[in-house]
Design a protein around this nucleic acid. Sequence first.
DNA 1: CCTTGACTTCAAGTTGACTTGAAGTGGCAC
DNA 2: GTGCCACTTCAAGTCAACTTGAAGTCAAGG
Lengths: 153, 153
Amino acid sequence: MDIAEVAKSSGVPASTLRFYEEKGLIRSVGRQGLRRVFGPDVIERLALIALGRSAGFSLDEIAGMYAPNGRPRIDRKRLASKAEELDDLIGRFTAMRDGLRHAAVCPAKSHMECPSFRRLLRVASTGLFEPKAPIVTPLRKKTATRKTRAATS
Amino acid sequence: MDIAEVAKSSGVPASTLRFYEEKGLIRSVGRQGLRRVFGPDVIERLALIALGRSAGFSLDEIAGMYAPNGRPRIDRKRLASKAEELDDLIGRFTAMRDGLRHAAVCPAKSHMECPSFRRLLRVASTGLFEPKAPIVTPLRKKTATRKTRAATS
DNA sequence: CCTTGACTTCAAGTTGACTTGAAGTGGCAC
DNA sequence: GTGCCACTTCAAGTCAACTTGAAGTCAAGG
C-alpha cells in the first residue's frame, strides 16, 4: 500500500501518516523509489493509536507502548490507571451534564438564582486549577479530509 | 481587591487574570495608579468561567455568554446542546474505561487476541477523525502555582 | 526622600498534534 | 522517452490558553 491508500482506508491524512512515522508510531516496510510502502498491519496500528488517543494517552506515551520490535507491549497497570482517570472524568462530566441539563430548563430568572446551578459552580471551581484536572478539546475542527483524496478518477 | 488577592482567593494566577481581562472575560472596577482593582464579583465570574471551561466551552464561547453590561446571558439551547455533547462523550469514555479495565486484567497472551480489546479498537477508530470527536488533554500540567504566591512569609 | 518589590505592558515563548508551503524527485501512463 | 503529478523533505505555521521575560511604573514603608 502506498501512503494514499493507507490514508484512504484509515481516514488518517497522509501528512499525519508521515508525522506518525517520524515520531516512530508507525513504520513503512520499505520504499519504492522515494515513496513509502506500508504493510497491511499499519491499519491495525493506526487503530491502536486512535484507541490510545481517545483514551487520553499522548502520542509519546503511545510510542512507548511498543517494544523495539514493533509489537505492542502494553503495561496493564498503565491501562488500569488510565481507566481510573477516565472514571474520574466520567463522574465529573456526568455531574456537568446533569447540571447543564437542569440549567437549560431551569425556571429561575437568572441562573445564579438556581441552587443547582450554584452547586454546579462549586463543582466546577473545585480542583479545576489542580494539575490533574483535564478538559475537553476538539481533536481537529476544520480542514476536512480533502487532502486525503488521491486518484481523482 | 488587588490582583494578588484575587489570585490567592480564586487560585487563578495573576497572569491568567490579566489575560482574561484582556480577553474581556473579567473586568476590573478601576485602577489605583497602575494597579487593577477588582470587585468581589470577579470571584463568581471566575467560577463561571471555570464552569464553562470544564463543560468544554472555549474562552471565546464563554466571552460570548455575557451581555455587554457584564451580566451573564446564557443561552439555554446552548447549554442543552453542550449537555448532549457531554452525554455522547460520557458514553464513549465509559466504553473506553470498561475496555481498559478489562484489558488490564485480560488473560489473553496479547491484547490483540482479546475480543473485548478488539471491540474497543473498533469503537476508538470509529468516528475518531470526524469533526465532532473530542479528546482529553490536561489543562496545565506543570508549573505549579508558585508564581501566585504573594507576600512571602 | 528613597528604596523596594509588587505591580504594569508588550512581545515572545510554550505545548501537542498536526498542517501547510516551497522546492525537489521519480513512477508510470502515454 | 517524457511529462505529469503524487509523492518526497524540511522548515515554518497554526491553534488555544496561557506563561515568561524584559523593561518600566509607582504606592507605601522606613
